[in-house]
Design a protein around this nucleic acid. Sequence first.
RNA 1: GCGGAGGUGGCGAAAUUGGCAGACGCACCAGCUUGAGGUGCUGGCGCCCUAAUCCGGCAUAGGGGUUCAAGUCCCCUCCUCCGCACCA
Length: 833
Amino acid sequence: MAEEKEVRYDPAVIEPKWQQRWAEDPALYAAEPATSGKRKYYVLEMLPYPSGQLHMGHVRNYSIGDALARHMWMRGCNVLHPMGWDAFGLPAENAALKNNTPPREWTLGNIAAMKRQMQRLGLGYDWATEVTTCLPDYYRWNQWFFLRMYEKGLVYRKQSKVNWCPECATVLANEQVIDGRCWRHEDTIVEQRDLEQWFLRITAYTQELLDGLDALAGWPEKVRTMQRNWIGRSEGTEVDFAVEGSAEKIRVFTTRVDTIFGATSVQLAPEHAIVSSIAAGNPESRAEIDALIEEQKKARESGDLGDIAKRGVPTGRFAVNPYNGQRVPIWVANYILADYGTGAIMSVPGHDERDFEFAAKYGLEVRRVIAPADPGAEAPALPYTSEAGVLVNSGAYDGMSCAAAEKKLQQVAEAGGFGEAKVTYRLKDWGVSRQRYWGTPIPMIHCERDGLVPVPDEQLPVVLPAQVEITQQGGSPLSRVPEFVNTTCPRCGGAARRETDTMDTFVDSSWYFYRYTDARNGSRPFDSGVVRYWFPIDQYIGGVEHAILHLIYSRFWTKVMRDLGLIVNDEPASRLFTQGMVIKDGAKMSKSKGNVVSPDDMVARYGADATRMYALFAAPPDRDLDWQEDGVAGVSRFLGRVWRLAARYAPVAAGARGQKPQPPTGTSLNLLRKLHQTTAKITQDFEGRWHFNTCVAAIMELVNEIQGADAQLASGEVAAPVVRELMITLVLLLAPFAPYLAAELWEQMGEQGAILRSPWPASDPELAKEDELEIPVQINGKLVTVVRVAADAGPREIEAAALADEKVKTRTTGRTVAKIIVVPGRTTNLVVK
RNA sequence: GCGGAGGUGGCGAAAUUGGCAGACGCACCAGCUUGAGGUGCUGGCGCCCUAAUCCGGCAUAGGGGUUCAAGUCCCCUCCUCCGCACCA
């Protein structure tokens, strides 16, 4: 054979070439209109925060989404595969402080850099629909939605606690509070201050958000469970205890009203509103209560609230149990949460672990009011928390089951006007005010005469001013921009002041995926008809860290938009996939651990195809992935093998275009069988199992087998039309995983048009079928040998083949074969005695 | 404490329904090739026993059970990771 200098596989040459071609063909990754007649498929990856650099978590997320999008394109779908930027947020202000760069400039620069990285990775996004949340043509719709919600009573103002650094004299975001101290002043304890804040009434949808989870079968159970816990529905009873010597009442919430005859004290949260009047005549307890509050605040800030010991202060006052008129002492205790239930409880030490612990510490009475239903049973030790018992020491209710007593006691309370059945939730309204510059301005105006006045729609957007000095001095940065603040009241025309708070960035990400469908609409957030076509999202892919906030806010926003008549879907996404983390040396990649792998480095060394394919090969997508650079090198070597295989056989494949194949035999048949098996396996995986790691492995096996038959391919024993089918299909199968190499080889084989628009290969079940199988033969469950039988052999033939085997014979002579189990196509087992 | 996911070679992992445990890749070893810049090809590679074997034994965190047959199903115990965490 003549010496031919093989051209090395060099992704640094191939990939930029195709990157440029794709950039010049904007229709390639563009969605078609609803009238295309194709099945629509909306695949969405969570949009990144433009920090400046992609990390491996992004690469993994987008490799999964891009493989799926490419597959769906090849399946002939009308695919929407967009990308955007969650571009508002605190890091831009931090960068401004540090480098004296305006947030907008910093952010847009980062976006440009990360977009280049994405394009270098060969990700197939439709950049014509790109959404950047910090630009007025996007955030004006945040403001528009805010006004619509305001009109529907879903926006309100309330006093609320914020983190306040006395040194900076400004509000801090939660992320800026480290162990209860200011991030810039390590010696300064952060205070809680009450400020008027804007809230969105997500609690108007609590029950629907909870019920909707049941129908989200395409979401991971883990995410649904986390949301259920977050919503935290709890059924119970509220009961009023009168305060002795006062007209005031203390309302408590309990899930165990059946134990109320065992209540031996009432416990208030330290921040409970009634505490000041209860403790008024009692200076020393007031001081102790303040100490409790202080201690708890510190514990909360340092994040170890759970470890704090239970402590309480007696107020010296008494409350009256409305069921039996009994006097019980009123205490203030640090384990009572002010913002759950009513912020007050009845303490039943006999039947609650926490109350028992508290009572034991302070010597409060412990009373048994629930006993086992079986009268002969020994009374269990207290606290006895089971609800399977019956009431004792409970007056007229003795002998009733817990469940029956609960119902009866609720009726009595309602009839007596001192209580009612009540459902509480942990979910609270969404505070969206941020005393920050780099966010969507809240479109409200404060007028001395007219009060709060919404900005009229025609004045939107309220544009974030460009020239704002970012300092650490005082309140919201916007309040120091007179041109922004000073305005006229839309109602009376008099002088007025703009709201200077901006919106939480979770607002931006709550509906961005709707905007993609109609991203350049200048008169509405989107066209309802277009959204109706594309929604719900067919597949949403992202990190599990967004399981609660982002995904619950998105669901809320969807329901609000539905009730505004803008959309008809109840939920944003029918399927959600949460990929695992990328770790290195057993730990999450982080700068402090020094185990960060840069995507740019990987692409520079091994190419985008190898980097992406490794991200899919190293672990199943839902599990954590341990990044091993040698593994990337391995995938790169594999792509090199494919490259050299194509260098030998692409001309053969190209030359065989249109040639009729003969019925395959021998090596050809074996190769085609493997080919069709591989096709079937990968097709199935895309349809749901998503084990892309084994898809890549299957392609490797296929290549190994073709390479193993190199001599037969070279000699022509495997005919040209077969070589053609092998090579064409191999490249098609590779296309979702290694798009650059696939595009290049597609061209080398003389194929016209984008491989992305070529139909996904079909697997012929007849060709994929084995004609012979190896059936393991076990004796008493232990493997003895393997027999070859026809693939369609029945139990009798397999049994005969097994018994005819020499090894089986030597092991069965002189013994009795008691039973033979044959699983056709699988195995056989002889029970020998 | 509650909820979830896991535990399989030196490493990443595979094994749709119970049916040959370890596919594929990495690392390593041997041979050939190449000749200085992450080369290519072929073969080997769970552990123990053995001079060696296609002999034999042991192996899916540990223990018990069901079954002709268990990584897979059931019970108990241990460990790791993630989420929530005094929610009355």
